[in-house]
Design a protein around this nucleic acid. Structure first.
Lengths: 237, 237
DNA sequence: TCAGCGAATTGATAAATATCAATCTTGAGG
DNA sequence: CCTCAAGATTGATATTTATCAATTCGCTGA
């Protein structure tokens, strides 16, 4: 593993307070792998052998049941995914696939568990990380239960536009995946975009422009207890 | 706090590995309160002052947005709720109200955080608890995204019936709340029950009898990665 | 530049779900 | 036992969402 990569991992809050010795032990047994787009990393139900850290690219976590499939969330750098399965030595609840070309760091699950028992600061950081994951999942559930599809899209666009600081931004993934993340079909995502046109939402391929964010906000009614101005509900695992 | 109550709390996995000294410090500043039904304990958005432990009764966690409301989960003895807000010193994402008469132990949030930093075993137990909460929330999200309302009810009845070990059981809360937990209106819950009648689901007030669990299972298609045979997705916070 | 393929959009229709209202049922209190 | 209020059911209708199919769009590779 290159020094820049180790430094990148070391900077994330989960690993930053860890002792040097424990960090070295953890990263010594790690793998850094590059994957092309659309590669399945693991399937839900499999034993959790690794904790994954996204160094580059984006990963989709999704679930399947009865010939149906739904995206649950996406993970960007330097997010980790499948944390709970690793600490519990349980199976994965979601499958994972790369959305674009990805570089992932894979930390052996047993080493992570060992590090938790030997480094109190790491355990405290893990508590912070897991509580963040849990809160994001609660927020996603609230989003699904309290809002219609159009409202969810509106909130998502407002949040993403605000975060990008520009009136125009690129959607971070293809529309089919975005639709699934928002809990709707691709057809209904197209229709929802069309519904938001009078609210200043201009769509050109994957480029979105918010020409009237105040109008859009009046429809979306953003709520700090559901939406985030930092990467969470729809961005991190 | 009575010795039986302290003993009850001490037996739960979250607190059982904690040192005697830390446990005493934690419970010394605690309050044990009895509440009648339909009492609001706190509102979403408020600062998290206490970690709650259910000693008796059942608590509903719910959320509101834009004049809409949805139940998120319920908590039974000896479950805790609002764990993530406490460890993060953040606000509550959900409101809480008693469903029936409740006896709750309230542990000061600051004491809980102090205990985490001073007792490594408690931190490890907290990681286990939080990862359980997170997994339950992911499962609930999968339930909402992958199943129709009727399917969710079928799965819930199968799970609850199986857990009770009898063909007949009592619903643990009123039907309006159950409907909201399952992500539907009370009207549609009634209709869903009627839809399940040919699958052997007999409803008499709050008493449910599963006369043909195999038929019901064929409809519900229970999945270990969504449903639980232990109290989780719809039972604990 | 062109062809082909996958993504996205649009249209039609069906299914799931919510809303509103009326009626029925049940449990608590007098 | 009776009354009343709240919970639940049923019916009618509207809205949201999904499914299926056809068409258009955009990107990649030859």
């Amino acid at each position: 593993m290159r020094m820049e990569d180790a430094a990148q991992v070391r900077e994330t809050p989960l690993f930053s307070g860890m002792s040097e010795q424990v960090f070295d032990a953890l990263t010594t047994g790690a793998f850094l792998q590059t994957f092309p787009p659309h590669v399945e990393l693991f399937r839900e139900g499999e034993a959790a052998d690794f904790l994954y850290v996204v160094m580059d690219g984006m990963v989709e976590l999704y679930a399947a049941w009865n010939n149906r499939e739904a995206a649950i969330t996406t993970v960007r750098p330097t997010g980790t995914f499948i944390l709970a399965a690793v600490v519990r030595d349980a199976c994965y609840l979601m499958s994972a696939r790369t959305l674009g070309r990805c570089r992932l760091l894979m930390l052996p699950a047993a080493s992570v568990r060992q590090a938790l028992t030997s480094d109190h600061a790491f355990a405290i950081a893990m508590i912070d990380e897991l509580s963040g994951c849990y809160r994001a999942a609660v927020k996603a559930q609230k989003n699904l239960k309290l809002r219609t599809g159009v409202e969810r899209l509106a909130a998502y666009l407002l949040q993403t536009g605000t975060r990008s600081g520009a009136s125009g931004f690129e959607l971070p993934c293809d529309k089919r995946t975005l639709a699934s993340l928002l809990g709707m079909t691709a057809e209904n995502l197209s229709r929802a975009f069309a519904t938001l046109r009078p609210y200043g939402v201009i769509v050109s391929g994957s480029t979105i422009t918010l020409a009237a964010p105040d109008d859009l906000a009046r429809l979306a009614k953003p709520a700090a207890l559901i939406d985030d101005l930092d990467p969470a509900a729809l961005g991190d695992g």
